[in-house]
């Protein structure tokens, strides 16, 4: 942390002499502290999965969801500050509403991600604001088929076949790279997503986690919905079994 004490890290409106914006990098630290979130764009849809770390046994199961619905056909998974993620989802829903009002057609995932990234970028420019402490995965099915995008705190917005953000993103990415994503079915993707989340979860450091998983595509009639319970349970048990044989 060479930046500390130099004074260049106090405001998002000031570069460091070597051209960095430390506030944005700190925002990425917030993302790295968070449980992993992944997205798989496959043949007939998108699957989102989150390793939701449960920091207290007092929490009700299913509380503090990190996957949210933006529109009928679009979901969003975030890693980082939970409250910032909820602000992003609010902005995203408003975007959906605006598009529907103006064009009477559903929002596309690309248009959504672009607009959200513009907002995220604006928050890297001023001393009076702090960049969003979340990386967000937007996944959905629209007129161009299944789409998957990540918006980072810097305002960078990129499309992916497989997306991973948060603590275990490096390992998750290597696992995603091994898959032939564009040939997988949604059901296969559910299995893989569960396996990856269980794999990247670090039992030694974190105790409990909940697997949160949604999908949108042919299997769900193009609606963003939670993966059905029976399928989720199957995916979990297969993920646990795969964990035994791994390494």
């Amino acid at each position: 942390m060479t930046s500390i004490g130099t004074g260049y890290d106090l405001s998002a409106s000031t570069y460091s002499p070597d051209g960095r914006i430390f506030q944005v990098e700190y925002a990425n630290k917030a993302v790295e502290n968070s449980g992993t979130a992944i997205g798989l764009r496959v043949k007939d849809g998108v699957v989102l999965a989150v390793e939701k770390l449960v920091h207290s046994k007092l929490l009700v199961p299913g509380a503090n969801r990190r996957i949210q619905t933006i529109d009928r056909h679009i979901g969003m998974a975030s890693a980082g500050l939970l409250a910032d993620g909820r602000k992003i989802s609010q902005l995203a829903r408003e975007e959906g509403s605006k598009i529907r009002k103006m064009w009477r057609e559903p929002l596309t995932v690309k248009a959504l991600s672009d607009r959200i990234s513009l907002g995220a970028q604006a928050y890297t420019l001023y001393s009076s604001v702090r960049p969003f402490g979340v990386s967000t995965i937007f996944g959905g099915v629209d007129k161009s088929g299944p789409s998957l995008y990540i918006v980072e705190p810097s305002g960078v917005c990129l499309g992916y076949h497989g997306a991973a953000v948060g603590k275990g993103r490096q390992l998750a990415k290597t696992e995603l790279e091994k898959l032939k994503l564009s040939e997988l079915s949604m059901r296969e993707a559910v299995m893989e997503a569960a396996r990856i989340i269980y794999l990247v979860h670090d039992d030694n450091k974190e105790k409990e986690f909940e697997l949160e998983m949604t999908w949108v595509g042919d299997e769900s009639n193009d609606l963003h919905l939670p993966v059905p319970d029976d399928l989720l349970e199957e995916a979990k048990s297969r993920a646990k079994a795969a964990l035994e044989t791994f390494e």
Partner: peptide, 11 residues
């Protein structure tokens, strides 16, 4: 439609 989407996204 607007109302429905609002309700759906509340989950």
């Amino acid at each position: 439609e607007e109302l429905s989407v609002e309700e759906i996204s509340a989950q």
